[in-house]
Design a protein around this nucleic acid. Structure first.
Lengths: 346, 346
DNA sequence: TTGTAGGCGTTATCAC
DNA sequence: GTGATAACGCCTACAA
């Protein structure tokens, strides 16, 4: 009933704790075959499970990676985290995470707690301002820090190529003949929005068109709906709206619908993220797949490389691809499609 | 540069480690005002952060709660986890989590790792079969276990009132005059599906109607699409489909659309979960709000109560409410609506 | 009020 | 090969 310690095992097996440790920890230190067998049997019989706190303390290394994000219930962060997690578990790490809810105090508390736990690495998701983290903070602990989705000189980063994504999407619409393209921004100060918008702007400018009319939707369906209502009722109605994410694009689709406008005939639409649902709204949503999971996997990759000696600050870019469906007008409305999720990756 | 330990602080402040400990750990052990002040200054200056592994080892208590779920990228689990997390942080706990990907080996490994960490509590999400957890497993460690969304005699549980949810939804459709109601099940062996289906069945039987035609969609949009295609092309086409979750309902909506059927006129639709998006598809989806976050909060509540001495096995039920929108036919299609997210909670 | 010292459960360095 | 034993960093009787 009481917790079995290494000493209990040693005693029961008639060996020293050192021997048990060598066996239980999977070390490659040589141990006699007979002894090993006996000890393993005892471990099994007693249900011995090494206390990780003790191991960490002794080894001075927790195999823990801390993840900090604005909100884990948000699909994007959840997917990135999943990517981190898969790679982490494969490498014998565990994931400890905290949502900041975009609040300074929560972010600070989360970071503090993670540092106390001496996490081997820290992955910060999102471009929010709520996080104050300096190299001095983590220096003493040798914690590897990776920022996902925000630029940095001092820390390693993993980013989606937002500018390129915006360009690709804008070019797609220009290719379809659109000249009045609007942009639906996410939240203020968001890196993702800024980059995508920059890409869109650049393409429009190069084509000699006016910069996109812009409204802000805070990345939610509701915000997208409201912002799109505004854009769609403006004097010069845009013929296409590029939303900074799928959720807003779907809100915009609802707005168009409620205004009696046809998508894509009256207004073409597209988003970013390639949310699972985007293939199943009607018309199916054209979007840009960012492979959020890859971002997480890449972040973990940086962490593992550090473990192998590379302590430099590195920057990785993960790029995605446009997924053309019906909402942009490049494909027939779903009615005639044989397959709901029909899409093309170019 | 090196990590600051309690000894460094003691030395710098000219006191014993015991004194520093009493101050740094926030204990209420009496300490002289002057001493306290001095020590606090040193802690601040040196940036001392207690090593949690050491604290845990010494206290024989990690303030860690482990969460195990099939897939954290799944909206539902993410929301429940968020609920756990908020409550956990408020109570000074941290959350360690693992996705099992519904695989036995991963589930076993996750559980093992969590047990080694000596998590104070374990929250198991989902009704999957991949998890083998017996009281004997955790008994030695005094780990509090809470199962969310699956029944159990031996462990505490938190569940949504699935039967009631199913009943409410079925009654809603009967009230609208439907007599051929079909059911879109999730994955095999899912508790949520079973309960909701049971509720639906019960109501239909009581009303003297045939049991619902059923197809399985695995809880995804794609599965819902495919399964609905099947149901909708059957000889006796159902006039209403109740899907076990919103994602499948949206897949079904796409299927109806692609078949040229009108929702809700040709076929009425409803889901469960009240996903944010459900208010923004067109027609807006009638659903049943389960407040997943509440499930998590409630689970954490059980854990905290245990901390206060209640070691009994307890069961909590969280119930939700139907959210009536346009897809069931009880409200006008969104076109005429002043507000996209229009909904009524009855 | 403050300090001393033993213990928490492992690992790792030495001897043997 | 195997076994003592000193860390690891903190907490907490117990003494003073």
């Amino acid at each position: 009933m009481a917790v079995v310690t290494i000493r209990d095992v040693a005693e029961a097996a008639g060996v020293s704790v050192a021997t048990v440790s060598r066996i239980a920890s999977g070390s490659d230190y040589p141990v006699g075959a007979r002894t090993r067998e006996r000890v393993e049997a005892v471990i099994e019989a007693l249900g011995y499970r090494p206390n990780q706190s003790a191991t960490d303390l002794s080894r001075r290394d927790t195999h823990l990676v801390g993840v900090v994000a604005p909100d884990m219930a948000n699909q994007y962060y959840a997917q990135v985290t999943r990517g981190i997690e898969d790679a982490a578990h494969a490498a014998g790490y565990q994931v400890l995470f905290s949502s900041t809810d975009r609040r300074r105090t929560r972010a600070a508390a989360a970071l503090e707690a993670l540092l106390r736990r001496r996490v081997a690495a820290l992955v910060v998701l999102g471009g929010g301002e709520e996080i104050r983290l300096t190299p001095e903070h983590v220096a003493p602990y040798g914690t590897e820090v990776v920022l996902v989705g925000r630029p940095s000189e001092t820390f390693s980063t993993v980013q989606a190529d937002g500018v390129r994504a915006g360009q690709v999407m804008a070019e797609h619409f220009l290719g379809l003949g659109h000249e009045r393209v609007a942009f639906l921004a996410g939240s203020r100060g968001s890196t993702a929005t800024r980059l995508r918008q920059q890409g869109v702007r650049r393409v429009l400018r190069t084509a000699g068109l006016e910069p996109p009319a812009t409204a802000r939707g805070g990345y939610t369906e509701e915000g997208g709906y409201t912002a799109a209502m505004e854009l769609l009722q403006a004097a010069a109605r845009p013929t296409a709206i590029i939303a900074a994410n799928d959720r807003m694009a779907i809100g915009a689709m609802a707005a168009a619908h409620d205004l009696g406008l046809s998508v894509p005939d009256d207004v073409a639409l597209a988003g970013f993220d390639d949310t699972p649902i985007s293939a199943y709204v009607r018309p199916a949503l054209t979007t840009y797949s960012l492979r959020s999971g890859r971002l997480g996997a890449e972040a973990m990759q940086l962490i593992l490389e550090r473990e192998e000696g590379d302590t430099s600050t590195r920057h990785r870019t993960v790029d995605g691809e446009i997924v053309v469906r019906a909402s942009c007008g490049a494909r027939p409305a779903a009615d005639g499609e044989p397959r709901a999720a029909r899409s093309a990756r170019t």
